[in-house]
Write a protein that binds this DNA or RNA. Structure first.
Lengths: 198, 198
DNA sequence: GTCTATAGTCGGATAGAC
DNA sequence: GTCTATCCGACTATAGAC
């Protein structure tokens, strides 16, 4: 009986710890999270946590790297950018604004990575390398393949477009400004389209 | 001799504590900062800190509110937006990109406020109310007073422009992506100008 | 009004039983 | 391989001396 014997055991234990740790780190941040709470949330003892991960920092780094890869990839990558510019732009913007803005875990992940980026520069750069840069490159490539848009510097414009969308999520949702300075999602999208096409 | 008697005492003690606390909170975050270190950095005892501020949370909130008002106001407010659109835009963009990108304290402040925005929503909203919203309104008003720019929704476009600039600082400096995905500041500015004017 | 000293709690990490 | 029990340092906050 050294092999898995119940449904719960059949999930890898490190996965179980991982699942428990996500909620704690996302809610409390790195320094605010205790290994006691992580162990309790994962349903294992603290010693078990330390048998799978070297220390708190190791757990945190492994966790964020994995979240970045598996959970928070989604905006690009689920579909490729193809078709009419206006359609592609509206679909991209709508997806980014809607999906992220309503995903509390994604918002908490943004807070966590930005907040810890000074103390964990490796993690921030991993995010740049695996999510931000590929996203910019994909949109930039799309712009470059559509000369009718008359965009001189496609990468710079891609950064502006994504920046406009991310800043909207940042101010409205992350910093919770939507009641103080409300704006309809569609006004932003219409203006983005007008700047690029109209 | 109940009045100030040395140069050091002539500075208000709460100001002294404030100055010591800034560095600690900016570097370590809220949970990572200890009141022992704050007291040491301020050059007073811990009991003195607690006589001026109710507790750690009270000190933190007072501190961030004050930093937002006094230190990190600068981008707008130092000059009003007047003159030719291209000149105004380039000056605004250059100032925001140069000044903030090189100001390590400002970058740390951005990390802190974003990172704690989930646990301290009041502070995040104070920042929205006192810095973000006024900035957007000012640029929006400028656009509205220049119909030759043919901007249908001046506030939405203001958000896109500022978003493009803030996102640049966020990716290059805050998340430290400038070596991974470098881009000249002027390429972004030229493309912004081209989108709005060219 | 400001200090030193300390109470009381909780943190990360580990030893040893099973 | 996982648990319980524990070490010990650091934390927030305060009491009491001066």
């Amino acid at each position: 009986m050294t092999q898995p014997n119940t449904r719960k055991d059949s999930i890898d234990k490190s996965e179980q710890i991982f699942q428990g740790a996500i909620g704690e780190f996302l809610e409390k941040g790195y320094a605010g999270t205790s290994m006691d709470k992580v162990a309790a949330a994962a349903g294992v003892s603290k010693a078990t946590v330390y048998s799978y991960f070297q220390d708190k920092e190791g757990l945190f780094k492994a966790l964020v790297a994995r979240m970045a890869r598996e959970r928070f990839y989604l905006v690009f990558g689920t579909e490729s950018l193809q078709g009419e510019p206006e359609v592609v732009l509206r679909r991209l913007a709508t997806k980014l604004l809607d999906r992220i803005a309503r995903d509390r875990e994604y918002l908490a992940f943004m807070r966590l990575v930005v907040g810890e980026s000074g103390r964990f520069p490796d993690l921030a750069q991993e995010l740049i390398r695996n999510i931000v840069h590929p996203g910019i490159k994909e949109l930039s490539g799309y712009f470059a393949s559509h000369p009718e848009l008359k965009i001189a510097d496609s990468e710079a414009v891609a950064r502006i477009v994504i920046g406009g969308l991310v800043y909207f999520v940042l101010t409205q949702e992350v910093l919770q400004g939507k009641e103080i300075m409300p704006m309809e999602r569609d006004r932003l999208i219409d203006s983005l389209v007008a700047l690029l096409i109209g």
